[in-house]
Design a binder for these strands. Structure first.
Lengths: 325, 325
DNA sequence: TTGTATGCGTTATCAG
DNA sequence: CTGATAACGCATACAA
């Protein structure tokens, strides 16, 4: 790899001059500027960002910690974040924590060692106190860590309300909410609160079923839903806390010969791309992922620049009616 | 951020000594070792990997260029690669090229500037000659760039054969292959070759439909398939070159009131997670993503260590029969 | 307009 | 067993 020194020699100037044309700093004659460019071209020079970062004390790297990019929701999230980050000159270091507490901690330290300028954290099995040791800009997705770390989420309570109300409006009499583990202290839990409050207010029979902590396994969704129908064969409405869970519900209903939406109505959450691709198309609550991603990064960058940002950042959700209701 | 210098002062030794305990090099008395560890603990020291990388001439970073991690296939691929990379002490810089030729080029240069130790390239709109300027270990997914750059793929021809044969065995008389743009010179094009050869050999009527170059848009799949059925209402078999395309096909058939698999049989490709989650579950050709990912990284690491590797690396595929055939 | 010297945080060489 | 110092590639203050 050629260095700035090689360029300098080739162009017959010193490294300072090369550095100057590289960064457009100070005065340089057009003649030398051309010489330098030519030399760079000839030896195919690319500045070493490691060295630059070291000097500047800024890496232009951000860390993204998610459970796994293999899950469509997080995959889409990661795509938005990377795209927006790139447009702001930031590069993304990808970390899949697999819902593993130890891995989350390790990643946090790894990112610190690699001098990332900030971290977007969307995986949350970790204990809150671990965050205090990371004195780096952080933005959190869907979880409130403490009074100081800003978080981005969509309006989970409103989403839960919209979903539950839709089921009830459509005539459901006995409904269930299938969601991730409620012990995780995620803001997504508000959906369940809204679900229960709404059902209670309307006098509708309701149940909540939650998954184990560290699992995206679709098998688990399926057995959970199967058991649910064994216990409550007359269930006629399901609010699934993700579109994938909703797809599982559709599958089980199909197995049990229950017609959708006539006998069972199903509503999902997130509005990932596949939600509108499968048959039947899944009614869902759309989270504004693109805006959430951009907002998260904006908040991160503002923190890097020492500007104060609001801690609470909640974006609106939207009901998207399709075929499962 | 505390530096090695701070640790040294705190412990009352020099940076050399601290560096020694950090890297377990040379002799150090237990007493000073303890002192140093204690100091590191107290000031919460983390070695600066930027500085280390600069000195060592090795960043332990790899670049991953894919069209978009928002597509389930590439999301799952990225998850496997990141997981395996992390186990080998490598970190992943995520690059979504969006099938954009310019972005691919920019990412390639960016990764070089950031001194990545190698690149895994799974996005291929770029011209072949661009690669010659990158003199870095590269491994390619599903595309043969030239005689020197190793590539990993699964047996596309065999996959095409398996899929086509299954349709024919099941009794299809008029079949179509829906695939990505064949002008892209991907190894995936072998599927189409196999499709045509197999259908021809068996004397079955067949058609090929391809998408535009830069698109993962499901809308496009749908209109393509819709048009296909308008032109050939008696089509009874579809070989889709991705599970998402297959899902689109299922949807259109459902719209047209064509029963699956009785009237139209559909087989997808990849076996992404959702393939077995949707209703009906999609019959597909499974690519061994986990092994392919690990292999790609192994090949990359070997190149870094200057060990020769085979250029052609083709893994077997597997037919997975489910409900759409 | 250009060059010299210094430091960013780390590791390795060579003394002691 | 431990310390002083150069070097990794780059950018800036200060000279010239």
């Amino acid at each position: 790899m050629p260095t700035i020194k090689d360029v300098a020699e080739k162009a017959g100037v010193t490294v300072t001059t090369v550095s100057r044309v590289l960064n457009n700093r100070g005065y340089i004659s057009d003649a030398t500027r051309k010489k330098v460019y030519k030399a760079m071209e000839e030896i195919n020079y690319h500045p070493n960002e490691l060295a630059r970062s070291l000097y500047r004390g800024k890496s232009n790297l951000i860390g993204l910690i998610i459970p796994t990019v293999g899950h469509p929701f997080f995959g889409e999230l990661a795509a938005f974040i990377e795209e927006y980050a790139y447009s702001q000159e930031y590069k993304v270091l990808l970390c899949n924590s697999q819902f593993d507490r130890e891995k989350e901690k390790e990643y946090l330290e790894m990112l610190k060692r690699h001098q990332v300028d900030g971290i977007i954290m969307a995986s949350h099995t970790i204990q809150v106190d671990q965050f205090s040791r990371v004195n780096l800009p952080i933005v959190t997705f869907d979880r409130q860590i403490n009074e100081k770390i800003p978080y981005v989420s969509s309006d989970n309570f409103r989403g839960g309300e919209l979903a539950t109300n839709l089921l009830i409006e459509k005539g459901c009499k006995k409904i269930a909410h299938i969601c991730g583990n409620l012990g995780l202290d995620l803001l997504a839990n508000r959906r369940n609160e809204a679900f229960m409050a709404t059902a209670r207010r309307q006098g509708i029979e309701y149940y909540t079923v939650q998954t184990e902590i560290n699992v995206f396994e679709t098998n688990q969704y399926e057995s959970l839903i199967r058991d649910l129908f064994i216990e409550h064969p007359d269930l006629d409405g399901i609010f699934a806390s993700s579109d994938l869970m909703a797809a599982s519900a559709v599958k089980i209903c199909s197995d049990l010969n229950k017609k959708i939406p006539e006998e069972v109505r199903i509503i999902g959450y997130d509005d990932i791309n596949v939600a509108s691709l499968v048959t039947p198309q899944i009614t869902t609550i759309k989270q504004p992922l693109a805006q959430m991603s951009a907002l998260a990064l904006d908040l991160l960058i503002k923190q890097m620049n020492k500007v104060k940002v609001p801690v609470e950042n909640i974006l609106p959700v939207q009901l998207i009616e399709r075929e499962t209701t």
